[in-house]
Computed example of a mutant assay.
Amino acid sequence: MPVLGHTQYGKAEVRVVRVFRDTDPHRIADHNVSVALSGDFADTHLTGDNSGVLTTDAIRNTVNAFAREAGDAVGAPEAFGRALARHFTAVPQVSRARVRIETYPWRRLEHDGQPHPHAFTRDGGHTRTTTVTATDDGGGWTVSGVAGLVVLKTTGSEFHGFHVDRYTTLAPTTDRMLATEVSAQWWHADDPADWNDSHRTVLGALTSAFAGHHSLSLQQTLHHVGVAVLTAGPGIGEIRLSLPNKHHLLVDLSPFGLDNPGEVFHADDRPYGLIEGAVRRDDLPDPGPAFAGW
């Protein structure tokens, strides 16, 4: 006999921009917030009884109101997400609230050679991500991250010695272009003193490790980057990395009577190799099952 399985509902992609005018220069926090609630909602599925349902409009309104009421916490998506998640788990029928936030960075425009206090341009380099999960027993976890961070090295990367079968056509190389679009999530086993500073530290460690590592494979680079992040970011228990190999293929210019000593490439967007993995502290249990679906 069919039975109802796990359900959740909420409001997705609430776009909220908070301007902090109480300081000069002004500051901006630009978030895209998605909330998912789980709990005792079987009746609305089985009988149509909506008496226990907090409306998705109320969820949206809460996000907007908290953008005003939460003060400086709005400037750090982890703190903002925690405030929202704890609010929603106080609703009697909610047992778990998951708040996912994409944060879009802005940087100041310059005027007369100086950063302008009130004018900004959207920094399209990457998106900061946050997932806060709270449970009605006071538990939960916070995961920070980054998406769309494109990094590239023109040299310092090799790939050879791989298994060869009858379908292998890739030639080994001791010097290749290495590029990837980093998606990373890191779980905070302990809270940092400053969420924004922690995010900058992790991002700096990640990009520095990628830049300085002589890579024998993207898999090896993934591990090297993960170790660097856990070493630099105190309190981080695990980092999960998804690294698509953004292939750059050498263009054959011989039909035009030209050589190409590793200078002209075609950026091939698909298909692509996808390397994924996690690096965690050895003094903590593997959080995989507990944090499935982060």
Rank of each mutant, 00 (worst) to 15 (best):
242 S>V: 08
226 G>R: 10
227 V>S: 11
254 S>L: 04
257 G>R: 04
258 L>F: 00
255 P>L: 06
253 L>A: 00
233 G>L: 10
260 N>K: 04
260 N>D: 02
238 E>G: 09
248 H>C: 00
238 E>W: 13
240 R>P: 08
257 G>L: 03
254 S>E: 03
233 G>H: 11
242 S>L: 09
246 K>R: 15
225 V>Q: 11
237 G>Q: 13
251 V>G: 02
263 E>K: 13
228 A>R: 07
249 L>E: 09
230 L>T: 09
248 H>M: 01
255 P>M: 04
225 V>R: 09
240 R>A: 12
245 N>T: 05
241 L>N: 14
235 G>K: 01
262 G>T: 03
232 A>M: 09
244 P>R: 03
228 A>Y: 07
265 F>E: 01
239 I>F: 11
243 L>K: 11
263 E>P: 00
243 L>R: 14
256 F>G: 12
256 F>S: 09
256 F>C: 12
231 T>R: 11
264 V>T: 07
227 V>C: 11
265 F>G: 02
234 P>D: 15
235 G>F: 05
231 T>W: 06
243 L>W: 09
245 N>H: 11
231 T>K: 11
247 H>K: 03
243 L>C: 05
261 P>S: 02
259 D>L: 04
235 G>N: 06
223 H>V: 15
253 L>P: 02
230 L>K: 08
242 S>R: 15
228 A>D: 12
253 L>K: 02
232 A>Y: 08
253 L>Y: 00
252 D>M: 00
242 S>W: 10
230 L>G: 10
246 K>Q: 13
265 F>Y: 10
263 E>D: 07
249 L>V: 04
239 I>E: 14
265 F>D: 06
257 G>I: 02
253 L>E: 00
236 I>T: 14
224 H>A: 15
229 V>F: 05
230 L>Y: 10
263 E>Y: 03
260 N>Y: 01
250 L>K: 05
223 H>F: 14
234 P>R: 14
242 S>T: 15
255 P>G: 07
243 L>P: 10
237 G>T: 13
249 L>F: 03
255 P>Q: 01
223 H>W: 10
257 G>F: 03
249 L>K: 07
263 E>L: 07
236 I>V: 15
256 F>M: 12
239 I>H: 14
249 L>H: 07
256 F>V: 07
257 G>N: 00
241 L>W: 14
223 H>R: 14
262 G>V: 02
265 F>H: 04
241 L>Y: 14
247 H>L: 02
251 V>F: 03
225 V>P: 11
250 L>D: 03
253 L>C: 06
234 P>A: 14
224 H>V: 13
224 H>F: 11
229 V>K: 08
262 G>Y: 06
234 P>W: 06
251 V>C: 05
264 V>I: 14
264 V>E: 07
228 A>E: 09
260 N>W: 03
225 V>K: 08
226 G>K: 08
